[in-house]
Design a protein around this nucleic acid. Structure first.
Lengths: 341, 341
DNA sequence: ATGAAAGCGCTAACAC
DNA sequence: GTGTTAGCGCTTTCAT
């Protein structure tokens, strides 16, 4: 292995060619102020002629920064790879970084080996900050990074009192709004298909469901609540099948993800129910514009673009030398009416 | 921005603590040979006590290597993000790197700005090599990297005489095999739904179709060949609709991607044909195990795992100081019979 | 086997 | 404004 070809011109050579000092060249390269325009031009020409490219290792070593941030993709995220959810967040993060000199690095962390290697990479100073997506509660990575003093921002939180900086959607509020909407529409028997309840996000969405009912003075009936093993369509289908069997009188359902909502929809159709005439379905949108084959279900939309942008903003702030207190941002969701539910 | 927290212990401090010289610590860290076992242990203890982590910028600067490679995701790839194709390649690459100290970095290159930034990143020596996926013919990136002398390996090639090192599936051979299989099965009127013919991969697959017919002494009829605008299902559907209208007697189709094959299948069903009884369909598999909703079509399978592994092998070899001639590897494909086509 | 020393190419602080 | 200089923390000869 041998990088940066031998023969790569250095700052020094540029300086010599332009007939100036190293410092001046450095100023030009980093376009700092305080350089006469004529000098600047001379240096720029020398740079062009020599095809000079700064050695980033040297810059990093001297400047104490890497001008790069990592977005970690855990095994959990991996399944999301295809999801519009994932894609949109990455896009948003990339966009937010466009006007900075910061390079975005996506890194896979699937095994302990990879986690270890990444931590050494990050602690070694190759990145100035880390973005984490969909972290599982037991994942030691956030704390490892925190202990190492690395600026870190998570998407979502692991529990109610998350210590690491995070950006999250208002899951409880979104769910509450959705269920309230159903109640206002005259629906009375509303089921809930939740995500795995060992995940905080699932707990929040279920809480929102409960709160809406309580606010409306409607009894919360445990038999109307079904926990899905995961957020998939199949899970939703199965949960719905159980629900409809137990409660044929059911006239609305809140599902904790749009995939589950799709599954629920299929189950309902199989059972001969019309949607939304007989039963209204609202999903909590995890993967945005549903696949073309999906029905236009009403969903609780997360502001993915804003989430990504906010994560970057927080991260950049933490990367400033000013030590910042832990921060938590919760962004509102939006109810998108796609049918007349 | 300020990385590697002030207060991070250095090699020097470890050396002091262990009562040895800097060089010795370096040897231990890189576990080089020629260190007495007792010394090694002493150093290791000092490292543990101090929580020492090597500064990668310094290592890079002194050692002329980054111990990292980039896998570039272009805008073109971006659509593939969800595809099993993409996922499997990335997985394979990650796996192939497991036993090395090399960190895999996925980088987005969607715009000129991002391309520029990435090139500076790479030329700046932050990575030792670059992996490229599904490069479009006009993309300047491969040549920019080549000019910079950066070890680069592409998945697929841009044309018949690609100069950059690449790993490709035997597209022509795969297509030839598929069509030969159809012929052997007694099918006589075989249509071809190609990809966009400005892409080399599409040309190769079409060529394979032609060759199979010629080898069998069957006339190649231009009206049986339809070019799709892209590799999508919709493209396949449209192409098939045209084909079946023009050639109702058609009894088999070769499609240049599995998505197109799915589209073709839908179009056939819409037209009232039974598959594979009336019309056999074989797709060239770009995205591996089709979605659950897809029919179990017979496909030409690409050895994705092997492709990824091979890419890494070539890249690592190019990264060795020994300058290597350009290399091209073409891997065989496999016909997977999923129905009785 | 191990210590000492010479850089790697850059930034930033300081002098002029 | 611009040149000079002292490191940044490590790898790698070269002595010993």
């Amino acid at each position: 292995m041998g990088r940066q070809r031998p023969g790569t011109p250095t700052l020094e050579e540029v300086a010599a060619r332009a007939g100036v000092g190293r410092g001046t060249v450095s100023r030009v390269v980093n376009n700092a102020s305080g350089v006469r325009d004529s000098t600047r031009r001379a240096v720029q020409q020398a740079i062009a002629e020599l095809g000079y490219v700064p050695n980033l290792a040297a810059r990093s070593l001297a400047g104490h920064r890497a001008d790069a941030v990592a977005l970690v993709i855990t095994e959990t995220d991996w399944r999301l790879f295809g999801e519009p959810f994932f894609t949109e967040i990455v896009h948003a993060v990339g966009d937010a970084l466009t006007d900075t000199p910061v390079q975005l690095l996506l890194t896979l962390v699937r095994t302990d080996t990879e986690r270890q290697r990444f931590v050494e990479y990050a602690r070694g100073g190759r990145v100035d900050g880390v973005l984490l997506m969909s972290v599982r509660a037991e994942d030691p990575l956030p704390d490892m990074l925190a202990k190492a003093g690395l600026p870190t921002v998570m998407l979502g939180r692991r529990s109610g009192d998350e210590s690491v900086t995070y950006v999250d959607a208002d899951n409880a509020g979104g769910a509450r709004g959705a269920v309230t909407h159903l109640l206002n529409g005259g629906r009375t028997t509303i089921g809930a298909i939740t995500g795995p309840l060992d995940m905080y996000v699932a707990q929040c969405r279920l809480r929102g469901y409960r709160e809406a009912l309580e606010l409306a003075g409607v009894e919360v009936r445990p038999s109307l609540i079904v926990e899905g093993g995961d957020f998939t369509e199949e899970s939703g289908r199965r949960a719905m099948a159980g629900l409809i069997a137990r409660h044929p009188e059911l006239d609305a359902v809140f599902a904790a993800s749009d995939s589950m909502a799709s599954g629920a929809l299929n189950a309902l159709r199989t059972a001969g129910r019309r949607v939304p005439q007989d039963v209204a379905v609202i999903g909590f949108d995890d993967s945005q514009p549903a696949r073309p084959t999906d029905p236009p279900l009403t969903t609780v939309r997360q502001p993915l673009e804003e989430i990504g942008r906010t994560m970057v903003r927080l991260l950049l702030e933490e990367m400033e030398d000013t030590p910042v207190a832990w921060r938590h941002v919760i962004l509102r969701t939006e109810l998108v009416l796609r049918d007349s539910a």
